[in-house]
């Protein structure tokens, strides 16, 4: 099944990834503060239902939402001894509801709160062993491919190495980029060209960017147009299929309610430009809900990437 994923991308198919299951779960009663993995094992039905809803909305990939299930994040919540449970259960629950031609995507995030040496105090060995513990449990639960990424490329590279050492499943890896006066940069200062190039060298199959793109000003459309610019930059650094998952703008607290500025219509308006710039796997991050997905899957309308490109850019 996993092999099929890369073949489909090669065949110019556009696939959809629903990353922010946590945004949906928040709408369904999951508070933002508690550990997501702990919540998932306590509410398996809601978690599975959210995955099913995301598949119904047109998503090809279902995410395990195990970003808070690394040894480091779990330890922050006093749950260091539950790594196997968190990862195994999330993967297994996802497997149970994932239809044929859809894929269980294992989410592996960067360490937090400490960093890999020399910036932080963790040795390569510690980080390697921590990821090994998490990834082994995910594999045991039954996954099809990896999504490895976050704020720190060097740590992602360790997790990529672990995944490569343990299995031959495809790896998607993406960085979180922010808008700075120097252009897009990761929190660690890497630019999209260099970051993408490093990931290609590490043997990653699909390369991309997510979340971030933060700016306190701006209309929802600005975030999605920035995503097009980011894909264009990443294309300069590697030749792999690209993935893009911008957030729905920066969250605002209005009348005690969390509001994200970017709308499904604004996302649908821009999604073809992402494909034209090189994206083959598209989706959204924080604040993106299922309406956004319905809007973009309808817009793409089952067309292949080459078709979208010829439809969008009239031949000159």
């Amino acid at each position: 099944m996993a092999k099929g994923f890369l073949e489909r991308l090669k065949d110019e198919e556009i696939l959809f990834h629903y990353a922010p299951l946590h945004s949906l779960l928040a709408d369904w009663g999951k508070d933002l503060e508690s550990n997501l993995s702990d919540w998932i094992v306590k509410n398996p039905d809601k978690y599975q239902d959210a995955l099913v809803q995301s598949y119904k909305a047109g998503c090809t990939l279902g995410c395990t939402q195990t970003q808070a299930a690394s040894p480091w994040r779990a330890a922050t919540f006093g749950m260091r001894d539950r790594i196997h449970e968190f990862n195994y259960r999330s993967a297994k629950l996802a497997r149970e509801v994932t239809p044929p031609d859809h894929y269980v995507l294992a989410m592996v995030s960067t360490t937090n709160p400490d960093f890999l040496e020399p910036l932080g105090n963790m040795t390569y060995r510690e980080v390697y062993d921590g990821y090994k513990e998490q990834i082994s449990a995910l594999l045991e639960g039954g996954i099809d491919l990896f999504m490895i990424g976050g704020n720190h490329l060097d740590e992602a590279l360790v997790a990529i190495q672990v995944a490569r050492d343990l299995c031959s499943l495809p790896i998607i890896s993406q960085n979180i980029f922010y808008t700075t006066k120097k252009g897009f940069r990761t929190m660690m200062g890497a630019d999209p060209v260099a970051a993408s190039s490093k990931l290609e060298d590490a043997g990653v199959d699909v390369i991309g960017g997510s979340c971030g793109l933060m700016s306190k000003a701006g209309d929802g459309s600005d975030y999605y147009r920035a995503a097009t610019a980011l894909v264009t930059e990443m294309r300069k650094g590697c030749s792999k299929p690209l993935v893009i998952q911008p957030n729905a703008g920066l969250a605002q607290l209005i009348d005690e309610k969390t509001v994200y500025p970017a709308t499904p219509e604004q996302m649908a308006e821009e999604v073809e430009n992402w494909v034209c710039a090189g994206a083959r796997l598209v989706g959204g991050c924080c604040g993106t809900n299922l309406n956004h997905y319905q809007a973009i899957t309808q817009k793409i309308g089952g067309r292949k990437a080459s078709q979208v490109i010829s439809d969008t850019r009239p031949r000159s």
């Binding site: 910036l119 660690m188 200062g189």
Partner: peptide, 12 residues
Amino acid sequence: KDEEIFLPEVLM
């Protein structure tokens, strides 16, 4: 603050 350097330089 001016985005001339990033987190790694600050941590070091």
